[in-house]
Design a binder for these strands. Structure first.
Lengths: 138, 138
DNA sequence: TTTATTTATGCAACATTATTGCATCTGTGA
DNA sequence: TCACAGATGCAATAATGTTGCATAAATAAA
């Protein structure tokens, strides 16, 4: 990923261009899977934990990242592939968590089927599948 | 729920009959939705937090409860409607979380669709839907 | 029923994850 | 280049969950 593009992405989401934001965004763009807070903390040791948390929050607010819940209590964060805005995140794709390597991937090709519940107003749906990923399965 | 039935449930899962376990189990049986740790802690103030955690763990181990992940990081716990054993939990039903009252319900009538991913070994799947529940929607 | 053994509980301490307040520093627009 | 809104780092705090250990209680055995 070129620096120019990183900067434009930040600008497009009306975020100030800072070293921390560039580094965090670059990591997400280079990773082919979701990143946990721990992943970031381990790699970007020159930034304070608080700053990393706030960076993640600002990215989520602006629709750059989305939060992926995890049954372990940890949360991971993935790039928003769809057109997310600060107003509405739409993540109807499936997330896959590998039981072996622990990586969480977004599967944009797999959409969460619409659920209808009589009497209910259905909003977001979140589907997490676990098992062995392509790498760990072979 | 009768006391007798509570005791039998515990006995059936080879758990010792203690006041804490009876009280916790009763709360789950009387609730029509999943309970968070906080719910339990607020209602069962005469037990230590640690004891409540350990009670939940023993119930999960024995297949009485299952853990429901939540995008907020909180976990809730629901009664296992299906036939769960200590060996295998099977919870292919959908969970619903109300954005208004915050309650999480199990929807045994809605099954999580099977997902196939080429090259992957697919194991468990977890589908959480959010929106407004029947009560809050009317 | 009493005793012995196993298991559960409560307390204290600790671990992890995340947030808040505040002083300082920096990016950006004027 | 100057002013100011916003970002950062540090310290403190909060929330959630776990571990070790002494004591208490439940069950099994005598």
């Amino acid at each position: 990923m070129e620096i120019k593009s990183l900067i434009n992405t930040l600008k497009d989401h009306s975020l100030r261009i800072t070293d921390c934001r560039k580094d965090v965004l670059e990591k997400f763009l280079n990773a082919n899977h979701a990143l946990s807070f721990k992943n970031l903390e381990e790699d970007l040791v020159n930034y304070d934990r608080v700053t990393l948390y706030r960076t993640l929050h600002s990215f989520i607010d602006k629709g750059i990242l989305h939060r992926i819940p995890d049954d372990s209590g940890f949360a991971s964060y993935g790039i928003c592939h769809d057109t997310c805005t600060p107003q509405s995140h739409s993540h109807d794709h499936v997330h896959f968590k590998c039981d072996d390597c622990g990586n969480i991937e977004c599967l944009p090709s797999h959409h969460v089927p619409k659920i209808e519940i009589p009497g209910y107003l259905v909003g977001e749906a979140n589907l997490i599948v676990s098992g062995l990923c392509n790498s760990c399965n072979h």
